[in-house]
């Protein structure tokens, strides 16, 4: 399986430097599970961070820092021995990689879906952030997602099936990074429902009047 659409290097840098928020990072981390190419880019970026750390001019530590440090490891060694290893939750369907599976708390077949109209469904994903929203979308085979533009950034990661728009065809692992300049009309592939992770920092703006009227009711 070849992944052909990747996040920008700029977004990967934000992920590596730690400035990218939790919800966007969920999208990037899920893409990384499916994309060896971007995992390598992240390795290079982390090595750059390590190099900068090695070459920074050192700060002066407070006088008792080393002594406090040694005292800390004695205490926490005892505490650490009492905690076991976390058990890995497995996806039976093999469609949802970690860390997405942990956030959803259940596998694809057990999710509660909320009707969006026009045959599409969503399942919202809880994160600690209020101003960025992550959801799984399920678009029926061959059906369009209503034409929309974005007021902010939108990441769409395909998990199953495929979708196409003017910028190309997106399959499992492919990630589309779209900003307000992209007005697009994605359509699910005709063989299979399309399941994707969609992350937005502003409500989507739909083109058609009918879609604009129902939009507030759907909460998207």
């Amino acid at each position: 399986m070849n992944v052909n659409h990747h996040p920008s290097e700029a977004l990967l840098l934000d992920y590596v430097s730690g400035t990218l928020g939790e919800t966007w990072s969920l999208g990037i981390a899920t893409h990384l599970a499916l994309c060896p190419t971007c995992r390598r880019t992240v390795d290079v970026l982390e090595a750059m961070g390590g190099d900068l750390l090695e070459n920074i001019s050192p700060a002066e530590m407070s006088g008792d820092a080393a002594a406090r440090m040694m005292a800390r490891i004695d205490v926490s060694d005892d505490a650490q021995n009492k905690t076991g290893l976390p058990t890995l939750q497995l996806s039976k369907s093999h469609i949802l990689p970690q860390p997405l599976l942990s956030y959803l708390g259940k596998d694809l077949a057990d999710l509660k879906w909320q009707r969006l109209g026009m045959g599409a469904f969503q399942s919202l994903i809880q994160t600690q952030e209020k101003d960025v929203t992550a959801r799984l979308l399920r678009i029926p085979a061959g059906k369009p997602v209503p034409e929309h533009t974005h007021r902010g950034l939108e990441l769409t990661l395909i998990l199953s099936g495929e979708f196409s728009d003017a910028t190309g065809t997106y399959k499992r692992g492919d990630l589309q990074e779209a900003d307000e300049t992209l007005g697009h009309h994605p359509c699910a592939g005709k063989d299979k429902d399309c399941v994707c992770l969609a992350i937005t920092d502003a409500p989507l703006r739909f083109r058609s009047l009918a879609a604009r009227i129902v939009q507030p009711m759907l909460g998207i």
Binding site: E22, I28, A33, D43, H94, P97, Q98, Q128
Partner: peptide
């Protein structure tokens, strides 16, 4: 006080490196 999602290197759903020796 934020969670930072990361891929799990032991996850069987993960797409493996096509050629581990490539890099």
């Amino acid at each position: 006080k934020m969670n930072r999602p990361e891929p799990d290197m032991n996850d069987p759903s993960m797409t493996p490196d096509p050629d581990p020796m490539a890099y």
